[in-house]
């Protein structure tokens, strides 16, 4: 899913920035760790979000026996 891709790119960015912070003040040993911690939170939230999203898609499939989004135009009027 593209949403996973978006979130993973942010994870990568955060890890890169946290490495940058750690390099910036090398004297402080904990510098940049909060960026890496954030990544774990994003992973947890992404897992929760995807489980809900897949459940919604399964629910749709049970009703219309297809996951074609062209069926989804009932609210456009």
């Amino acid at each position: 899913m593209c949403i996973e891709l978006m979130l993973n790119s942010v994870n990568l960015l955060l890890v890169a920035f946290s490495k940058m912070q750690a390099a910036k003040d090398a004297a402080v040993t904990v510098a940049g760790t909060d960026g890496q911690l954030f990544v774990f939170f994003i992973m947890v939230v992404a897992a929760a979000e995807v489980s809900v999203g897949l459940a919604i898609i399964v629910m749709m499939y049970r009703n219309i026996h297809s996951v074609d989004i062209n069926f989804l135009n009932r609210l456009k009027h």
Binding site: I3, M6, L7, S9, V10, L13, I42, V45, E49, V52, G53, I56, I57, M59, M60, N63, I64, I69, F71, L72, R74, L75
Partner: peptide
């Protein structure tokens, strides 16, 4: 079906904006 459609749209839009927020 309307509820399904609304849920899917809300989910896609919501997670898209979550991605933007995280960025």
């Amino acid at each position: 079906l309307k509820s399904n459609e609304a849920a899917l749209k809300y989910f896609l839009m919501g997670s898209f904006s979550t991605g933007i927020m995280l960025m």
